[in-house]
Simulated assay, not measured.
Amino acid sequence: MFEIEPTIGIEAPPGTVWKYLIEIEDWWVPSNPEHESLAILSDDEELREGTRIRVREQIAGLPGVAVGEITEFRPPELITWEASNARYRYHGLHISVNEGVSWKLEPTGEGTNLTAYVWASFPETVFGSLIEWSFKNVLDGGRERLPTYEERNRVSQRNGRIRELNCGTRCVSATSVSY
């Protein structure tokens, strides 16, 4: 099982962070260079429990597609997305992975802590163990790397909405990060 749980402090109340968090098309792909594309597959106008989402990505150099759905949606505190059959390729071989992420918002005296609990479980085979090792050791010792200040600014320059939230109002500026 692969698990990480980074937390970032944000100088904004949970309601403000929540409004930004549910606009996943604006930030999910630009937030991580390993994410290639995202598509909402449901006809839902807003995120809710049951909304289906497809993510194309390259994790630890392995191309993959994860189709999952929002399994928990509790405004303004928690969103969970789970893909029970994400498919990755390694030198022409395919592997299915169960994976997901929960974004949890907790109010603090200075704003909000946003925690992303990310997990993946692999088949109990030699090949599954190899892929799990890649996830754990290629992803910075088992942790997906949070973007640096410079990377966030590059994203900000490409996406005016992220720039406004990250830089203009300081409502989504990092104050602390922990694992």
Rank of each mutant, 00 (worst) to 15 (best):
A116Q: 13
T71L: 07
A116Y: 01
R143D: 14
T169N: 13
V17A: 13
N32S: 12
M1Y: 01
P123M: 08
V138E: 10
L139R: 07
K136W: 02
N159T: 11
V17L: 07
T71S: 11
E110N: 06
E106A: 14
G100I: 04
T51S: 13
E72L: 09
G50P: 05
G64R: 00
E3T: 13
E110H: 03
V29I: 14
W119E: 01
P14Q: 05
V29K: 07
T169I: 08
P123H: 07
S42C: 08
N137H: 15
S121H: 06
R145Y: 00
S134Q: 12
V29R: 03
Y88L: 15
L41M: 13
P6K: 05
G68P: 06
K104T: 15
P30H: 05
K19P: 05
E57W: 03
P63F: 03
A39R: 15
V101H: 02
A174Y: 13
E144H: 11
C171M: 13
A116N: 00
N113M: 12
G9E: 05
S31Y: 06
E57M: 14
K19D: 15
G92P: 05
K104C: 07
W103Y: 09
Q157L: 14
I70W: 01
R170M: 11
W103D: 00
R170N: 14
V55F: 08
N85Y: 10
M1F: 03
I8E: 08
S129D: 11
N153Y: 13
L165G: 02
R89H: 11
L38P: 02
D44K: 08
T51W: 00
P13I: 11
H35R: 00
Y88A: 11
G111K: 04
E69R: 14
R161E: 09
G109L: 10
S178D: 12
N98E: 11
G15Y: 01
F73N: 04
P6L: 09
I40H: 05
S96K: 14
W103V: 00
D26E: 15
T7I: 14
G160V: 08
T16N: 01
G128A: 06
E49D: 09
N32A: 10
T80E: 15
W103M: 09
C171R: 14
E106G: 02
L130A: 13
I59H: 06
S178M: 06
I79D: 03
W27R: 02
